[in-house]
């Protein structure tokens, strides 16, 4: 009986404490996600050159456990104008977010820092196919993420600023 009353005292004391829960849909009351949170993958954007980081090399697609992505590459016009160091650039990119399991393998294998796990995690939509996101939408998600955490590429070489003409011919390491 004593232990029972002790338990009641614990519940009573908890009732007087501040709540530990947040209220989910309310933007001001919900608990924010951590900086490292892995939401759905999104493509990052190189503002210096005004093009995405992604060159469409398909490494992430080959390594995806659920094969939820597809991509196509094209020749980069900005490379011929010597505005960018990327010879090829992403043309179309589609991720089926309904299939994605948020494992982060695509981010691991990417050599260009072109794909990141954004903080996007609410993908309830009214349309049937709305979870198949295309390139503009992915970049929109990525830009939102970049601005939120003040993102910069992990490797300097991945910046698209064109190298001097001499080195740009020798060093096309981005495309290996």
């Amino acid at each position: 009986m004593i232990k029972l009353i002790k338990g009641l005292i614990i519940t009573l004391s908890t009732a007087l404490r501040s709540p530990v829960t947040g209220e989910y849909p309310m933007p001001e009351k919900r608990i924010p996600v951590k900086n490292k949170f892995m939401g759905f993958p999104a493509l990052t954007y190189d503002f210096e050159i005004d093009e995405p980081f992604c060159t469409g090399c398909m490494v992430c697609i080959r390594n995806c456990p659920t094969s939820c992505m597809s991509a196509n590459m094209k020749d980069n016009e900005k490379f011929t104008e010597n505005k960018s160091s990327r010879k090829k650039i992403i043309d179309t990119f589609e991720i089926n977010l309904g299939r994605c399991i948020l494992c982060g393998i695509c981010v691991d294998v990417c050599n260009f820092d072109a794909i990141e796990m954004s903080h996007e995690h609410e993908r309830s939509k009214f349309e049937r196919n709305a979870n198949r996101v295309n390139l503009p939408e992915l970049i929109k998600m990525g830009v939102k993420y970049q601005q939120k955490i003040n993102w910069s590429p992990k490797q300097e070489k991945n910046r698209g600023t064109p190298k001097k003409p001499k080195t740009s011919n020798e060093n096309n390491g981005n495309l290996t």
């Binding site: 490292k36 949170f37 796990m117």
Partner: peptide, 25 residues
Amino acid sequence: LYGFRDREKIQSVFESVTGARMMHN
């Protein structure tokens, strides 16, 4: 309620370390 309260705290640490609350990889 008590069990989940404390479990959520652990999962918050997981989230800040691994990026996910449950499926960490």
